[in-house]
Design a protein around this nucleic acid. Sequence first.
DNA 1: GTTGAAAACAATTTGGT
DNA 2: ACCAAATTGTTTTCAAC
Lengths: 143, 143
Amino acid sequence: MDDLDWLLLGELQADARLSFSELSRRVHLSPPAVAERVRKLEESGVIGGYRAHVDPRHTGRSVVALVTMSCYGPGCVLRHPEMLDSPDIFEVHRVTGGACCVLRVAVATMEDFESLIDRLAAYGTPSSSMVLSSPVPWRPTSP
Amino acid sequence: MDDLDWLLLGELQADARLSFSELSRRVHLSPPAVAERVRKLEESGVIGGYRAHVDPRHTGRSVVALVTMSCYGPGCVLRHPEMLDSPDIFEVHRVTGGACCVLRVAVATMEDFESLIDRLAAYGTPSSSMVLSSPVPWRPTSP
DNA sequence: GTTGAAAACAATTTGGT
DNA sequence: ACCAAATTGTTTTCAAC
Protein backbone atom coordinates (compact mmCIF):
# COMPACT_ATOMS: atom_id res chain seq x y z
CA MET A 1 0.00 0.00 0.00
CA ASP A 2 2.05 2.90 -1.26
CA ASP A 3 1.00 6.34 -2.42
CA LEU A 4 0.11 5.02 -5.85
CA ASP A 5 -2.26 2.45 -4.36
CA TRP A 6 -3.95 5.18 -2.37
CA LEU A 7 -4.32 7.25 -5.50
CA LEU A 8 -5.97 4.35 -7.26
CA LEU A 9 -8.21 3.70 -4.26
CA GLY A 10 -9.23 7.33 -4.26
CA GLU A 11 -10.21 7.26 -7.89
CA LEU A 12 -12.08 3.98 -7.63
CA GLN A 13 -13.91 5.05 -4.51
CA ALA A 14 -15.09 8.15 -6.35
CA ASP A 15 -15.98 6.27 -9.53
CA ALA A 16 -15.86 2.50 -9.55
CA ARG A 17 -16.56 2.30 -13.26
CA LEU A 18 -13.32 3.87 -14.43
CA SER A 19 -11.46 1.68 -16.88
CA PHE A 20 -7.87 0.65 -16.28
CA SER A 21 -6.90 2.86 -19.18
CA GLU A 22 -8.59 5.89 -17.69
CA LEU A 23 -7.06 5.09 -14.33
CA SER A 24 -3.66 4.79 -15.92
CA ARG A 25 -4.01 8.28 -17.33
CA ARG A 26 -5.04 9.74 -14.01
CA VAL A 27 -2.25 8.26 -11.96
CA HIS A 28 0.38 8.37 -14.70
CA LEU A 29 1.04 4.68 -14.80
CA SER A 30 0.81 2.18 -17.63
CA PRO A 31 -2.43 0.22 -18.01
CA PRO A 32 -0.87 -3.16 -17.22
CA ALA A 33 0.70 -1.76 -14.06
CA VAL A 34 -2.66 -0.38 -13.00
CA ALA A 35 -4.40 -3.64 -13.74
CA GLU A 36 -1.98 -5.60 -11.60
CA ARG A 37 -2.14 -3.17 -8.71
CA VAL A 38 -5.91 -3.20 -8.71
CA ARG A 39 -5.96 -6.98 -8.93
CA LYS A 40 -3.71 -7.16 -5.89
CA LEU A 41 -5.88 -4.70 -3.99
CA GLU A 42 -8.86 -6.90 -4.75
CA GLU A 43 -7.14 -10.14 -3.80
CA SER A 44 -5.79 -8.75 -0.56
CA GLY A 45 -9.29 -7.70 0.42
CA VAL A 46 -8.57 -3.98 0.52
CA ILE A 47 -11.09 -3.52 -2.24
CA GLY A 48 -14.12 -5.41 -1.02
CA GLY A 49 -16.21 -4.93 -4.12
CA TYR A 50 -17.67 -2.39 -6.49
CA ARG A 51 -21.18 -1.19 -5.85
CA ALA A 52 -23.65 1.11 -7.42
CA HIS A 53 -24.91 3.28 -4.62
CA VAL A 54 -28.70 3.48 -4.44
CA ASP A 55 -30.21 6.06 -2.14
CA PRO A 56 -33.14 4.33 -0.42
CA ARG A 57 -34.94 7.67 -0.26
CA HIS A 58 -35.01 7.76 -4.04
CA THR A 59 -36.72 4.39 -4.22
CA GLY A 60 -39.67 5.01 -1.96
CA ARG A 61 -37.94 4.12 1.29
CA SER A 62 -38.29 7.53 2.85
CA VAL A 63 -38.27 6.41 6.45
CA VAL A 64 -34.70 5.81 7.56
CA ALA A 65 -33.73 4.98 11.10
CA LEU A 66 -31.01 3.69 13.35
CA VAL A 67 -32.44 1.03 15.62
CA THR A 68 -30.50 0.07 18.71
CA MET A 69 -31.39 -3.39 19.96
CA SER A 70 -31.03 -4.35 23.60
CA CYS A 71 -31.25 -8.09 23.76
CA TYR A 72 -28.85 -10.45 25.42
CA GLY A 73 -28.98 -14.17 25.91
CA PRO A 74 -30.42 -16.91 23.70
CA GLY A 75 -33.22 -14.68 22.42
CA CYS A 76 -30.85 -12.06 21.07
CA VAL A 77 -31.60 -11.06 17.51
CA LEU A 78 -27.99 -11.76 16.54
CA ARG A 79 -28.68 -15.44 17.17
CA HIS A 80 -31.58 -15.36 14.75
CA PRO A 81 -30.13 -14.49 11.36
CA GLU A 82 -33.48 -15.08 9.67
CA MET A 83 -34.78 -11.95 11.38
CA LEU A 84 -31.87 -9.93 10.01
CA ASP A 85 -32.52 -11.28 6.52
CA SER A 86 -34.99 -8.56 5.68
CA PRO A 87 -34.83 -6.18 2.72
CA ASP A 88 -35.70 -3.41 5.18
CA ILE A 89 -32.49 -3.93 7.17
CA PHE A 90 -29.43 -2.54 5.41
CA GLU A 91 -26.74 -2.89 8.04
CA VAL A 92 -26.27 -4.71 11.33
CA HIS A 93 -23.39 -3.89 13.62
CA ARG A 94 -22.63 -5.66 16.85
CA VAL A 95 -21.51 -3.09 19.38
CA THR A 96 -20.26 -2.68 22.93
CA GLY A 97 -22.26 -0.84 25.54
CA GLY A 98 -25.78 -1.14 26.77
CA ALA A 99 -27.00 -2.46 23.42
CA CYS A 100 -26.09 -5.57 21.52
CA CYS A 101 -26.38 -4.20 18.00
CA VAL A 102 -27.34 -1.27 15.88
CA LEU A 103 -29.42 -1.66 12.72
CA ARG A 104 -29.71 0.77 9.87
CA VAL A 105 -33.19 0.33 8.41
CA ALA A 106 -35.15 2.01 5.64
CA VAL A 107 -38.81 1.49 4.84
CA ALA A 108 -41.49 3.17 2.77
CA THR A 109 -43.96 4.23 5.42
CA MET A 110 -44.33 4.70 9.13
CA GLU A 111 -46.73 1.81 9.02
CA ASP A 112 -43.98 -0.41 7.65
CA PHE A 113 -41.66 0.95 10.30
CA GLU A 114 -44.12 0.11 13.04
CA SER A 115 -44.44 -3.41 11.74
CA LEU A 116 -40.67 -3.82 11.57
CA ILE A 117 -40.28 -2.59 15.13
CA ASP A 118 -42.97 -5.02 16.22
CA ARG A 119 -41.10 -7.89 14.65
CA LEU A 120 -37.82 -6.79 16.23
CA ALA A 121 -39.44 -6.43 19.64
CA ALA A 122 -39.83 -10.20 19.75
CA TYR A 123 -36.07 -10.49 20.27
CA GLY A 124 -35.32 -7.57 22.57
CA THR A 125 -35.99 -3.92 23.19
CA PRO A 126 -35.61 -1.73 20.12
CA SER A 127 -34.80 1.94 20.53
CA SER A 128 -35.19 3.99 17.37
CA SER A 129 -33.60 7.20 16.18
CA MET A 130 -35.06 8.52 12.97
CA VAL A 131 -32.49 9.78 10.49
CA LEU A 132 -33.47 13.34 9.55
CA SER A 133 -30.63 13.92 7.13
CA SER A 134 -27.06 12.84 6.56
CA PRO A 135 -24.65 15.78 6.52
CA VAL A 136 -21.90 13.32 5.65
CA PRO A 137 -23.63 10.41 3.91
CA TRP A 138 -20.31 8.82 3.12
CA ARG A 139 -16.59 9.55 2.95
CA PRO A 140 -13.88 7.58 1.14
CA THR A 141 -11.19 5.81 3.08
CA SER A 142 -7.95 7.71 2.85
CA PRO A 143 -4.49 7.33 4.39
CA MET B 1 -38.92 1.83 -11.98
CA ASP B 2 -40.17 -1.47 -13.31
CA ASP B 3 -38.92 -5.00 -12.75
CA LEU B 4 -36.19 -4.57 -15.34
CA ASP B 5 -34.84 -1.51 -13.56
CA TRP B 6 -34.72 -3.45 -10.33
CA LEU B 7 -32.89 -6.24 -12.09
CA LEU B 8 -30.31 -3.79 -13.37
CA LEU B 9 -30.02 -2.17 -9.97
CA GLY B 10 -29.43 -5.56 -8.43
CA GLU B 11 -26.63 -6.37 -10.82
CA LEU B 12 -24.96 -2.99 -10.47
CA GLN B 13 -25.21 -3.03 -6.71
CA ALA B 14 -23.46 -6.40 -6.73
CA ASP B 15 -20.85 -5.37 -9.28
CA ALA B 16 -20.65 -1.76 -10.36
CA ARG B 17 -18.04 -2.50 -13.01
CA LEU B 18 -20.24 -4.60 -15.27
CA SER B 19 -20.31 -3.29 -18.81
CA PHE B 20 -23.55 -2.44 -20.55
CA SER B 21 -22.95 -5.42 -22.81
CA GLU B 22 -22.56 -7.78 -19.89
CA LEU B 23 -25.61 -6.27 -18.23
CA SER B 24 -27.57 -6.70 -21.41
CA ARG B 25 -26.75 -10.39 -21.41
CA ARG B 26 -27.79 -10.84 -17.80
CA VAL B 27 -31.13 -9.12 -18.06
CA HIS B 28 -31.87 -10.20 -21.64
CA LEU B 29 -32.08 -6.74 -23.07
CA SER B 30 -30.14 -5.07 -25.87
CA PRO B 31 -27.10 -2.98 -24.97
CA PRO B 32 -28.65 0.33 -26.08
CA ALA B 33 -31.75 -0.34 -24.02
CA VAL B 34 -29.61 -1.07 -21.00
CA ALA B 35 -27.51 2.03 -21.55
CA GLU B 36 -30.55 4.25 -21.68
CA ARG B 37 -32.16 2.71 -18.64
CA VAL B 38 -29.00 3.07 -16.60
CA ARG B 39 -28.57 6.65 -17.77
CA LYS B 40 -32.08 7.43 -16.61
CA LEU B 41 -31.48 5.77 -13.27
CA GLU B 42 -28.39 7.95 -12.87
CA GLU B 43 -30.10 11.16 -13.92
CA SER B 44 -33.11 10.58 -11.69
CA GLY B 45 -30.76 10.14 -8.73
CA VAL B 46 -31.71 6.54 -8.04
CA ILE B 47 -28.11 5.56 -8.75
CA GLY B 48 -26.11 7.98 -6.65
CA GLY B 49 -22.70 6.86 -7.84
CA TYR B 50 -20.40 3.91 -8.25
CA ARG B 51 -17.91 3.21 -5.52
CA ALA B 52 -15.16 0.78 -4.81
CA HIS B 53 -15.81 -0.46 -1.31
CA VAL B 54 -12.76 -0.30 0.93
CA ASP B 55 -12.96 -2.03 4.28
CA PRO B 56 -11.29 0.34 6.77
CA ARG B 57 -10.15 -2.68 8.78
CA HIS B 58 -8.05 -3.80 5.81
CA THR B 59 -6.24 -0.47 5.70
CA GLY B 60 -5.03 -0.21 9.25
CA ARG B 61 -8.17 1.39 10.67
CA SER B 62 -9.02 -1.42 13.03
CA VAL B 63 -10.88 0.66 15.58
CA VAL B 64 -14.42 1.25 14.36
CA ALA B 65 -17.08 2.93 16.44
CA LEU B 66 -20.46 4.58 16.39
CA VAL B 67 -20.28 7.85 18.25
CA THR B 68 -23.48 9.48 19.39
CA MET B 69 -23.15 13.20 19.91
CA SER B 70 -25.33 15.08 22.37
CA CYS B 71 -24.93 18.71 21.58
CA TYR B 72 -27.63 21.22 20.95
CA GLY B 73 -27.48 24.93 20.41
CA PRO B 74 -24.86 27.08 18.69
CA GLY B 75 -21.99 24.85 19.78
CA CYS B 76 -23.48 21.75 18.14
CA VAL B 77 -20.99 19.87 15.99
CA LEU B 78 -23.43 19.99 13.08
CA ARG B 79 -22.90 23.74 12.94
CA HIS B 80 -19.15 23.25 12.61
CA PRO B 81 -18.60 21.36 9.36
CA GLU B 82 -14.84 21.76 9.68
CA MET B 83 -14.95 19.32 12.58
CA LEU B 84 -16.80 16.78 10.48
CA ASP B 85 -14.26 17.15 7.68
CA SER B 86 -11.97 14.54 9.11
CA PRO B 87 -10.68 11.41 7.31
CA ASP B 88 -11.53 9.52 10.50
CA ILE B 89 -15.24 10.30 10.21
CA PHE B 90 -16.97 8.24 7.54
CA GLU B 91 -20.61 9.06 8.08
CA VAL B 92 -22.64 11.66 9.93
CA HIS B 93 -26.38 11.27 10.41
CA ARG B 94 -28.60 13.80 12.07
CA VAL B 95 -31.12 11.93 14.21
CA THR B 96 -34.11 12.40 16.44
CA GLY B 97 -34.00 11.52 20.10
CA GLY B 98 -31.69 12.46 22.92
CA ALA B 99 -28.77 12.92 20.57
CA CYS B 100 -28.24 15.28 17.69
CA CYS B 101 -26.20 13.03 15.43
CA VAL B 102 -24.49 9.69 15.06
CA LEU B 103 -21.01 9.38 13.57
CA ARG B 104 -19.40 6.30 12.12
CA VAL B 105 -15.69 6.61 12.72
CA ALA B 106 -12.67 4.39 12.02
CA VAL B 107 -9.15 4.96 13.24
CA ALA B 108 -5.93 3.01 13.51
CA THR B 109 -5.38 2.90 17.25
CA MET B 110 -7.11 3.50 20.54
CA GLU B 111 -4.80 6.47 20.97
CA ASP B 112 -6.19 7.98 17.78
CA PHE B 113 -9.67 7.22 19.01
CA GLU B 114 -9.03 8.97 22.29
CA SER B 115 -7.77 12.02 20.47
CA LEU B 116 -10.79 12.06 18.17
CA ILE B 117 -13.15 11.83 21.13
CA ASP B 118 -11.30 14.68 22.79
CA ARG B 119 -11.78 16.86 19.75
CA LEU B 120 -15.46 15.95 19.51
CA ALA B 121 -15.98 16.69 23.21
CA ALA B 122 -15.40 20.37 22.47
CA TYR B 123 -18.80 20.46 20.76
CA GLY B 124 -20.91 18.24 22.97
CA THR B 125 -20.99 14.98 24.84
CA PRO B 126 -19.82 11.99 22.79
CA SER B 127 -21.04 8.53 23.68
CA SER B 128 -19.17 5.72 21.94
CA SER B 129 -20.12 2.19 21.00
CA MET B 130 -17.26 0.17 19.60
CA VAL B 131 -18.19 -1.93 16.58
CA LEU B 132 -17.15 -5.52 17.35
CA SER B 133 -18.26 -6.99 14.04
CA SER B 134 -20.84 -6.40 11.37
CA PRO B 135 -23.09 -9.44 10.84
CA VAL B 136 -24.71 -7.53 7.97
CA PRO B 137 -22.10 -5.09 6.72
CA TRP B 138 -24.27 -4.04 3.85
CA ARG B 139 -27.36 -5.10 1.92
CA PRO B 140 -28.49 -3.93 -1.51
CA THR B 141 -31.64 -1.92 -1.92
CA SER B 142 -34.39 -4.11 -3.34
CA PRO B 143 -38.07 -3.61 -4.08
C1' DG C 1 7.60 -1.27 -14.34
C1' DT C 2 7.28 0.12 -19.91
C1' DT C 3 6.08 -0.09 -24.71
C1' DG C 4 3.74 -1.52 -28.86
C1' DA C 5 0.82 -4.47 -31.45
C1' DA C 6 -3.09 -7.73 -31.77
C1' DA C 7 -7.17 -9.30 -30.50
C1' DA C 8 -11.30 -8.74 -28.04
C1' DC C 9 -14.65 -6.06 -26.45
C1' DA C 10 -17.82 -2.32 -25.68
C1' DA C 11 -20.34 1.97 -26.82
C1' DT C 12 -22.95 4.43 -30.02
C1' DT C 13 -25.44 5.48 -34.06
C1' DT C 14 -28.63 4.37 -37.48
C1' DG C 15 -32.70 2.59 -39.30
C1' DG C 16 -36.32 0.10 -38.35
C1' DT C 17 -40.46 -2.46 -35.81
C1' DA D 1 -39.64 1.45 -25.68
C1' DC D 2 -37.06 -1.74 -27.87
C1' DC D 3 -33.92 -4.48 -31.34
C1' DA D 4 -30.36 -5.54 -34.91
C1' DA D 5 -26.47 -4.39 -37.36
C1' DA D 6 -22.52 -1.97 -38.29
C1' DT D 7 -19.21 1.42 -37.25
C1' DT D 8 -16.15 3.40 -34.42
C1' DG D 9 -13.45 3.58 -30.76
C1' DT D 10 -11.51 1.75 -26.61
C1' DT D 11 -9.68 -1.60 -23.56
C1' DT D 12 -7.38 -5.45 -22.38
C1' DT D 13 -3.84 -8.51 -22.89
C1' DC D 14 -0.02 -10.41 -24.84
C1' DA D 15 4.83 -10.25 -26.01
C1' DA D 16 9.48 -8.53 -25.53
C1' DC D 17 12.18 -5.57 -23.00
